[in-house]
């Protein structure tokens, strides 16, 4: 009975708690990071294979759209890291702490830590975009 429909119904429709959302977010952020990573490795290697093209790539990177993507990427990486650390720690060192209270709390903490790391970074990156691309703040 497993099908894409069942899966999506469950992912979106099931009223899971913190663990459910952490799972979904972990998966989405992970896929986001790996997609970017694949592109990033290839484009960075242009530095060696075709340095003149690399300048073009940098220009793409500097675009507003890409900049916003990058802000999202930073969130993905932070959340995926914090939440992954949480899961790895519980699985490997503290299976006894897979209790309802602790799991709900740890998932929330993971999200908050990720946000705390991300918001100042995002602010600074946004500032850079506004400064360089829109000439604000004297740029």
């Amino acid at each position: 009975m497993s099908s894409i429909k069942t899966t999506l119904t469950g992912y979106v429709g099931y009223r899971g708690r913190e663990g459910h959302w952490a799972f979904l977010l972990h998966r989405i952020t992970g896929l986001g990071v790996v997609l970017f990573l694949a592109i990033h490795i290839v484009d960075t290697s242009f530095v060696y294979f075709a340095p003149h093209l690399y300048e073009e790539i940098l220009n793409v990177y500097r675009s507003t759209l890409f900049g916003l993507g990058e802000i999202a990427l930073v969130f993905c990486l932070f959340f995926h890291g914090v939440n992954g650390l949480r899961i790895a720690y519980l699985d490997m060192f503290a299976p006894k702490d897979w209790t309802i209270d602790k799991t709900r709390r740890s998932a929330m903490i993971a999200l908050i830590v990720a946000l705390v790391m991300w918001i100042p970074s995002a602010g600074y990156m946004a500032y850079n975009i506004l400064y360089h691309n829109f000439g604000l703040f004297g740029g």
């Binding site: 663990g19 299976p95 309802i100």
Partner: peptide, 25 residues
Amino acid sequence: RTAFNCTEACPRDIHITQAIAEVKR
């Protein structure tokens, strides 16, 4: 994938994810 829905859903309050983690270990 430790989504934890199982433990939340268990009407007998079994620490399911914990049990799975113990088996993994």
